[in-house]
Simulated scan of single mutants.
Amino acid sequence: MSSDSQDVFAVRSAAILDEGLQRGQADALLAGIACAQRRAGRQVRGLVMIRTEGAVGCAGDMVLIDVHTLDEYLVSQPLGRGAAGCRADPQGFARASQVLRDAALQAPDLVICNRFGGLEAEGAGFTQELLTLMAAGLPLLTVVAPQHLAAWERFSGGTTMLAADAQAIEGWIEQALAAPEAS
């Protein structure tokens, strides 16, 4: 890959750092960005997370929503109240991954992936779909928590990191859309 391609790759992919936000705020921010971009007439594809209201801690269902069709994908397993293990359901993520694979074929203005999380940090989850989107040069926006930041930087090659600020994110989107596509 040429250095020009690497520069485009870095400009057209970004992660919002989920640092110091209350649970669910990064998800709400990402969903708001998707809605704002669609209202602006842009084609947006991808997934955002919602969690069951009223659930304490990690006890609620985790559901991914397709930002285009509004289809829902349950991506958590009911392990019970006292469970300490990861509740992520790999089969749910596998079903939802079709949304990101379709986005790579549709080449929208912006692709949103709910987050680069624990599964992706371990090389699972949406890693293949994220790599495909990044290699295609599509503007890609995701969220990363501090504990997965080093894994994200290794995975992405050091793409843009954004504060959880709607104005900064909108500015990055404008810059990413103005950048030439990777060839």
Rank of each mutant, 00 (worst) to 15 (best):
L162N: 04
D102F: 02
Q167S: 07
D66G: 10
E122S: 12
V143Y: 09
L105P: 00
P146T: 04
Q147K: 09
G118Y: 01
R95G: 00
R81G: 12
E72C: 14
L119Q: 06
G57W: 05
P78M: 05
L100Q: 03
D66Q: 11
G158S: 12
L100R: 02
A104N: 09
L131G: 14
A94S: 12
W152K: 02
G82I: 09
A107N: 10
Q147L: 08
A83T: 10
D61R: 15
R81V: 08
R115V: 01
D102N: 12
G117T: 01
A136R: 15
E72R: 15
I50L: 11
A96G: 05
G80V: 03
D109Q: 12
E129I: 03
M49W: 06
G125E: 01
S97D: 08
G82R: 12
G117Y: 00
R87N: 08
Q98N: 06
L74R: 13
C58H: 14
S76W: 00
W152P: 01
H148G: 11
G123S: 02
M161C: 13
V111I: 07
R154D: 07
V56N: 06
F155Y: 06
Q91V: 14
A55D: 10
G117N: 02
R101L: 13
Q91F: 12
E170T: 09
G158L: 14
A121M: 06
I65S: 01
I169Y: 00
P108W: 04
M62R: 00
A135F: 01
E170Q: 13
V56I: 15
I169E: 01
T132S: 08
Q98A: 10
T127Q: 06
T159K: 03
R95S: 01
Q167D: 05
V144H: 06
A94T: 11
L79W: 00
M134H: 11
V48Q: 02
G92F: 04
G117E: 01
L47T: 13
T142M: 09
V63L: 12
D109S: 14
V48H: 02
L47Q: 06
G54N: 09
